[in-house]
Design a protein around this nucleic acid. Sequence first.
DNA 1: GGTCGGCCTTGATCCGGATCAAGGTTCTGA
DNA 2: TCAGAACCTTGATCCGGATCAAGGCCGACC
Lengths: 238, 238
Amino acid sequence: MDKIAALSRVACLSDLPRPLIERLAAQSGMQRIGKGSILFRQGEQAHFVYVLIEGGVSLLSGPEGEQTITDFVEAGEIIMIAPALLRLPYLVTAKAVTDLLVIMIPAADFRQLAETELSLCVALNRILAGHWRLLLKYLTQTKSRDADTRLMQYLVDSAATSKGPAQFTLPGSKQDLAAHLGITPATLSRALKRLGKLGVQTKGAEVRIEDVSRLNALFQRSSHPIPDRIIRPPSRAQ
Amino acid sequence: MDKIAALSRVACLSDLPRPLIERLAAQSGMQRIGKGSILFRQGEQAHFVYVLIEGGVSLLSGPEGEQTITDFVEAGEIIMIAPALLRLPYLVTAKAVTDLLVIMIPAADFRQLAETELSLCVALNRILAGHWRLLLKYLTQTKSRDADTRLMQYLVDSAATSKGPAQFTLPGSKQDLAAHLGITPATLSRALKRLGKLGVQTKGAEVRIEDVSRLNALFQRSSHPIPDRIIRPPSRAQ
DNA sequence: GGTCGGCCTTGATCCGGATCAAGGTTCTGA
DNA sequence: TCAGAACCTTGATCCGGATCAAGGCCGACC
């Protein structure tokens, strides 16, 4: 697969005019990266923008050793546009969860195009605005109540549907999920067991939910109206 | 003060060509808003982009009743660009902390300009990228360790300097700060008392720090080796 | 000036989740 | 096929911060 084909397949770039994609391709390099590799570290100056063609990446932040996972990035997404645009250091560390295929665009070239090509600029706005909303959502959830609720939120969001049964694969290990939710693996394990009573099963990284709307209903209630003494008793009373 | 003058004084717009500022001004309205008013609510469709000329706004999110403060916005900043660009509902509720003077630009007009005017588009990219970084930082901090550390972080970030004495005013009440840090007023009070031993005094919303570097040193140690002297956010741009 | 109502502080207690410490299970590689 | 090493689960205990509940302080309004 050549660079142009790969880039045109990326959703957020696919609307760009062909010549622009060709310029991006010309200025970039395609690279295989092995599972577990570090793409870049928090604090480093941004040298590249990474377009993830195949594989999954987790974005880690926080003090060395006890970092949490800020986000999972999957194929078809673009990583770390903000630091490249602003010429600032990365705020996170990126680690390959699987073997990867990425296209690396030098930050300076990317910046230059972003400031002269309207179509790219508009596309970037969309991407950045989307990312902003995603982070905001994470932030809200992180601050909001207990581990069980956050886990439920995550599961519902990850399910392709909003009612009926669902089944999907976690982007990483359960440890990774725990780090993303800001809890320990031990707590995640217990939380999953509790959710088992609500029709959530896991086997490795596979998750099966009997009825998404059942979960949905639960934290819909705990989020919308004012009553704040609902959710705990049922699940605790086992 | 007329709209054009007000808009040109906003840092992130000041580089735009004059005619563009005039078009923005022509399409927008200036409005006074009283302290405590709600500018918009979480879930509403985005009708306006708000340019904050005078005053302070807090952005609340989370379940009704027990919301936390996601961010404080101060004069010279622009609120809620992302929902306007994406035609999506607001993810937060905006509440006036003081009396305000805002310029309201209809979302549709704004979107149209953002997609046709390169200079505006580039400016937006910078703003969005900056906001993204700010949120990411909040997210990291929120997940990271204890209340005292988060408070110290906040104080150090808010201090104009990175060493020596500092003095400043909180953007809201202590309750507001507590909500922003994701703790209760009671915990904040105790945390401040603890920090008193490190040379932090408060009187109402006034904060005085004897020696910022003393705090800085502390959580430098508790965080990690990689020195990433990055930004401090009086403004979220950057 | 006095009273009322927020806001802040302080104390006592409770609870969710971390931590520590075993097992059990699945994956990997020789 | 087996051994070792991650990974996951489960139990016991501990601790930070929430919650409940009084007071103290201060500004606002009569």
